[in-house]
Nucleic acid binder design. Sequence first.
DNA 1: ATATCAATCAATCAAATAATTGAATAGTGT
DNA 2: ACACTATTCAATTATTTGATTGATTGATAT
Lengths: 223, 223
Amino acid sequence: MSSETPKRLLFRQFAAVAKAVAHEHRLELLEALAQGERNVELLANRTGMSVANTSQHLQQMRRAGLIESRREGKFTFYRLSGPAVLDLLAALTRIGERHVGEVDKIVRTYFLSRDELEPVSRSELLARMKDGDVLVIDVRPQDEFASGHLPNAINIPLEELEAQLATLDTKKEIVAYCRGAYCVLSFDMVERLRARGFKARRLEDGWPEWQAAGLPVDPFPSS
Amino acid sequence: MSSETPKRLLFRQFAAVAKAVAHEHRLELLEALAQGERNVELLANRTGMSVANTSQHLQQMRRAGLIESRREGKFTFYRLSGPAVLDLLAALTRIGERHVGEVDKIVRTYFLSRDELEPVSRSELLARMKDGDVLVIDVRPQDEFASGHLPNAINIPLEELEAQLATLDTKKEIVAYCRGAYCVLSFDMVERLRARGFKARRLEDGWPEWQAAGLPVDPFPSS
DNA sequence: ATATCAATCAATCAAATAATTGAATAGTGT
DNA sequence: ACACTATTCAATTATTTGATTGATTGATAT
């Protein structure tokens, strides 16, 4: 069997793309980039990696076509190369979720099980937002909230919950969301809110998916 | 930064799933499995790998939740664990296709460029099949054809084209398909048919995608 | 029982990948 | 020109991963 059939060559390319996502740290970088464009240093800080290490992982993903970069002055900004990258991540988590027992075990060990958190679907949330009887909380850090969020969502990172508790409308049901289906910030948020007597649920996934679905966003997209 | 946050643990699991697809040979195995359930030896022959090697790759994918196995007598049959695996492969090829220039270059080096092959969409083919003015050729090996194919398709593996040429209706337009968007058998088939004066085009993707889309199939699904 | 066959396991060696370090670029502000 | 900052590059080392070989398990048939 010749190893140089066109088919082999093609599979080698596709495998290279897969290799580029096949690392803990790179997945974390992609999750961060799914929130919006970011520079190297910020990504390094957010993921706890060294700058050099972060830079190398980013370049690897760029070579594979997962992300693109843009230079602005001293900074290099990276961003996802397109919506297919979100599809890739979604498929990956769906497989993990459905077929890797370990995943469910981790979630259950650290949080209430997913069913108990009663996830809200995007369409259900959208409908209830129109009725105005729901309070949407974005649990991500401020900079991620700033680069885009659900309409009328308010930004409360976990560490600021205490300070903002008094300002929350106790009558409305709360829906919390963050980066994606397995961004644990919103798991945590829902638990804390419930512990304080609020009726709180989780959005089934996060900001990148909402945006990719073409649903209304804040601020209104400029380009 | 603790490396034992639940988030890290989750990403580690998802990375493990990605690692399991991140190999030339494993992608080839998945492509074969996307055609239907297969045993180890057949997969080894089809991919040109040793049986032991094939078995190890399969087990690795099983551990990652990509495939499942079933024992029947002496044989172990493997199959995809679910439709999310096809989504994963689709996302992978879409990224490769869009962002890795190499992919297009390979196709163009060995075949006519993709545009020249004028791919037919699934819905377009479906419509024309109803009108009855199109001849659908399945280019895959007999065993794959046997485990399922497009309605009224005829099976002509590449090496049998010569022998069957005379039996083809020269008036109808031909649409060829095989395993997927980058299964090169149908590229080849379309070129050969055109060289002989037939009007031939390629289906945009292959059997697994057709089936996953819930379109009508032959033989009628039993379960 | 024994032979046979499919698949897996275990041990080995070769190759690829990741993290770290310190040096090198390239763009900014003074 | 100079220092300063963000990022990248290059070299090293530790670790992981892949292919091969031959032995082993488990199921079937004679």
